[in-house]
Computed example of a mutant assay.
Amino acid sequence: MAAAHRRGSLSTAILDPAALGGLVEHLETERFFDHLHDLLNTVLHINNLVAIVFRNMGSPLILHQKSPQEPNFFRMMYAQGAYLLDPFYLASKDERRAGIHRLKHLAPDRFVESEFYRSYYAKVSMIDEIGLLWPFDEDLTIHLSLGRRLGSERFNAREFAAFSHIAPLLTALLRRQVRGPIQTWLEPVTFDGLAAASAPVIDIAQDWLRGFHATARETEIAALILQGHSNVSIGQALRISGETVKVHRKHLYAKLSISSQTELFLLFIDRIKQFSARARRS
C-alpha cells in the first residue's frame, strides 16, 4: 500500500529512504543493481532492468541484466550482436542524445515490423522501455534500461517525468558503480578482430556485402532496413524516392538470393557470429 502511495506521488518522485539507503550501502558491490531495481520500483513499476556500457567500437559491457524469462534471449541474441540494431545503441553514438528517452521517440517508423523487433524484442515480451544514456567519457556511454513486459501498462508522462527527476542522482551513483568494472574491461585485449566483430551496422554490411557485389547504395539501404526503416523513411534519409529504394532493395535481395527482411536479418546475425568466432580464434 505504501509503495502504491509513493508511486502515486510521481510529480515529486520522493525516494524511499530505506531503499535509497540500501542502494548507497551496496555501492561498488555485486548487489548494487538488485537494490537499484528495488529503489526504482518505489517510484515506478518495472519488470526488467538492464545496465550496459556502450563503446564507439567494440562489444558492450553487460553490467546487469535481470529477466524472469527463459530462455534468456538477451544473452542468446542481444549480447551476441543484435544490440547493433538497438535504437538506444544507435542513439549512443550521437552525443546530442544524452539524457532520458522513450523507445518510441528513438525507433524508426517501421521498428515494430523490423526483424530485430520480431526476432528479439517481441520474444522478450517487452511492450515499453525508458532508457538513460549518459556519456562516461569520449568513448563510453552508460545505458540504463527500464522495461515493462506484457501484462503491464505502458509508461505514462508522469512516470517518465519521475524518472527524469531522479536521473541525476542515479547517474552520479552509476558513475561510481561502473568505474571498477570498466577499468577491468578495458585492460588490453590479446586478440585482433574485436572491433570488427562489433563494428557499426554499416561497416559490417560493407564488409559482408562486398562479396555479393552490392553497390554502396544497396549497402546503405541494407543497414537502414535492418534498423527498422521503411522504404519511405530510407528515401528521406538518403534523399531518394521510395520507388528508387524499392528498386535497390529488389536488386540487393536478388544478389543475396533472398526474398524477405527475415532472411536479411538472419544473414546479418550469421555474419556477426562469424566475426566473433574469427576473433576468438585469433
Rank of each mutant, 00 (worst) to 15 (best):
E115Y: 07
L63G: 00
H248D: 06
G235L: 08
L132D: 04
A162W: 06
I142G: 01
A195E: 15
A157G: 09
L226S: 00
D128G: 03
I234T: 12
R154T: 11
Y121W: 14
P135R: 03
S259W: 01
L132Y: 14
H105I: 02
K66I: 08
T215K: 03
H101K: 00
D128V: 03
G99H: 04
V43N: 04
R148D: 05
S230F: 10
D128E: 04
L133D: 00
A4M: 13
R55I: 06
R118C: 02
W134C: 02
A214P: 06
S276P: 01
E218C: 05
A277Q: 12
R75G: 07
L133G: 00
R97L: 08
H165R: 14
V245Q: 12
A91L: 00
I202F: 05
A223D: 03
L256P: 00
H45Y: 09
D128K: 03
A195Q: 12
S11C: 11
S119N: 13
M126L: 15
P135L: 03
E187A: 15
R281I: 12
H5S: 13
L61Y: 08
E218V: 05
E70L: 14
E28H: 04
Q261K: 12
E187L: 15
N56R: 13
R96D: 11
S282N: 15
L209T: 01
A167K: 04
A82P: 00
L252K: 08
A254L: 13
D94Y: 05
T184A: 15
Q206L: 10
N56L: 10
F74C: 01
A13V: 10
F74Q: 00
G193V: 10
G131T: 03
D86Y: 01
D207W: 13
S260T: 14
R280H: 13
A13S: 13
A167D: 01
D109S: 12
A107K: 03
L209H: 01
R179V: 14
I127P: 02
F268L: 02
Q274G: 13
R158H: 11
S9W: 09
E218Y: 04
A4E: 14
S233E: 15
A195S: 13
V53W: 00
T42G: 02
N47T: 04
A162M: 10
I221S: 03
P200S: 10
A196T: 11
R7V: 02
A19N: 05
D38F: 09
S198L: 07
S114Q: 10
I127C: 04
F275V: 09
H213G: 11
